[in-house]
Nucleic acid binder design. Structure first.
Length: 455
RNA sequence: GGUCCCUUCGUCUAUCGGUUAGGACACAUGGUUUUCAUCCAUGAAAGAGGGGUUCGAUUCCCCUAGGGACCGCCA
């Protein structure tokens, strides 16, 4: 059975790149009728925060990237990680290193000054006697040997082990380091496919060494190219659109973000729109691209606009109400009801949920705009007003009739009536059509607003 | 600096050696429209450069250029 995993460290919110990695892992496992597991790599006690862990899990849930089984915590397996290190030590695949931090820093510094590449020189590699000093445990890497990474995305990568250093497995406080923990956990969790960011490519080689020394069966590796920001640089936390939360905040629907992420670095023929079933059905590791891709915010918005228009309305409303309640000022229930029952009108020029909220603004946040009404407009509005007051309730046909009459009687175009009216009723020249505005406001509120301007 | 990776319209991408190099977003123009949008139609827009291999290269190989990742007792 295929088992994949997503293994974030809870040192920040879920990153957009991480979200895509998680999505690919999820999709592949589902496509193969396998499992997708979540492992929280919380061994950095200093930087790991529970709040980030919760945010990551919430964000994955929001995106609909659901993991199987319980969450795995790397910190709970530390004993097993150190056991493996000790076994490697016993079998002479690892050794104790007594070099001090200062000594190492110095060597690094010298290397830097001479602008040569620094890797640990293996000073303690062949030490025979035990010393009564603090030590770290390093993996003994076979020198001058080619090792292969059969990467499902990048192809075969061959590297000479002499460019790899004898990296640390156990710190001087006896805690395991990342490459050890990750390898052991992947083994323990029976991970069959490791799908992760390109930045782990070199780590993969190190992890492969551990697997080989331990005689474990290797998982298959897939390193996907990173996502760059719009200016072509590495996406960083300082970019204000780097976490899923950033997108949620401006009213991007999870289904849209998911669709966008799916098509970033992956494709299936010319297909652009994928629902959940389709994305599982068509996803394949073969179609992952080799080159890094830039974030295109316009594309995200356009996809979001597509979903706003095409999603069934009750689902859209559900998302919208949660969005407003989470991020916008508190609105009375009857205003929310008014918005949701007129969603088909208000969603009209919206690319985001925030746009829908803003489009609804005229309902509850009305201001008198006297300066826009000149005398000619006033006469026409007056005429409209005196006809409108005769109506008892909203009646689309009768309103159209009134409009037609005014246009004919005054020999004007519709916009001569419509534009000032729209300004009076909404305070903006960009709003729904006149009859929709009246429908949303209701006859009496419409009358109130007009009265304010013509008296 | 060392090792490794990448390179098709502005962006995301299709192309399994032979195509008028396709699609989508964005852009431009026109049309529909009760403002603005939507919608529809049309258009402009790409194989980094140089060598090979081949009857034929965007596709395979090499070099150059550009970009990226990694090089912690972080993960």
């Amino acid at each position: 059975m295929v088992i994949t995993r997503f293994a974030p460290s809870p040192t920040g919110q879920l990153h957009i790149g991480g979200a895509r990695t998680a999505l690919f892992n999820y999709l592949y496992s589902k496509n193969q009728k396998g499992k997708f597991l979540l492992r929280i790599e919380d061994t950095d006690k200093e930087r790991s925060k529970k709040i980030y862990e919760n945010q990551i899990i919430d964000s994955l849930g929001w995106l609909g990237v659901n993991f199987d089984d319980n969450v795995f915590y790397q910190s709970q397996n530390i004993k097993k990680h150190t056991d493996v290190a000790n076994q490697l030590l016993k079998n002479n695949f690892a050794y104790k290193c007594y070099c001090t931090q200062e000594e190492l820093d110095q060597k690094r510094e010298i290397a830097k000054q001479n602008s040569v590449n620094y890797i640990y020189d293996g000073k303690c590699r062949d030490l025979r006697e035990e010393k009564n000093l603090p030590f770290v445990v390093r993996l003994k890497i076979e020198k001058n040997k080619k090792i292969m990474l059969y990467d499902g995305v990048q192809g075969d990568i061959e590297i000479d082990t002499s460019t790899l250093e004898d990296f640390i497995l156990l710190r001087s406080d006896n805690t395991p380091t990342y490459n050890l923990s990750a390898s052991v956990d992947d083994k323990l969790m029976n991970i069959t496919h490791v799908i992760r960011g390109d930045d782990h490519k070199i780590n993969a080689l190190k992890q492969i060494m551990i697997f080989q020394y331990m005689g474990w069966k290797l998982p298959k590796y897939f390193h996907i190219p990173l996502i760059h920001s719009e200016d072509g640089k590495k996406l960083s936390k300082r970019d204000n659109a780097s976490t899923t939360e950033d997108y949620k905040k401006i009213g991007i629907l999870p289904i849209a973000l998911r669709n966008y992420l799916l098509r970033l670095g992956w494709s299936y023929k010319d297909k652009e729109i994928f629902n959940d079933e389709e994305s599982i059905k068509y996803f394949s590791l073969k179609n992952i691209g080799k080159s890094p891709s830039k974030l295109d915010f316009e594309r995200i918005k356009s996809l979001n606009e597509f979903y706003i228009k095409n999603l069934n309305e009750s689902f859209l409303i559900e998302n919208l109400v949660i969005y407003i309640k989470t991020y916008k000022k508190k609105l009375d229930d009857n205003i929310i009801d008014n918005i949701t029952s007129n969603i088909n009108i208000l969603k009209n020029k919206a690319k985001t949920l925030e746009d829908i909220y803003n489009n609804s603004n005229f309902i509850y946040d009305f201001q008198k705009k006297l300066d826009v009404i000149n005398d000619r407009n006033k006469t026409i509005i007056n005429e409209f007003y005196s006809e409108l007051v005769k109506l008892k309730s909203y009646d689309e046909e009768k309103i159209s009739q009134i409009n037609q009459n005014i246009i004919k009687n005054n020999n004007i175009k519709f916009k001569d009536l419509g534009q000032p009216l729209r300004l009076i009723l909404t305070g903006s020249d960009q709003a729904p059509s006149i009859k929709d505005i009246i429908k949303i406001l209701g006859i009496s509120e419409t009358i109130n607003r007009i009265k304010l301007h013509i008296n």
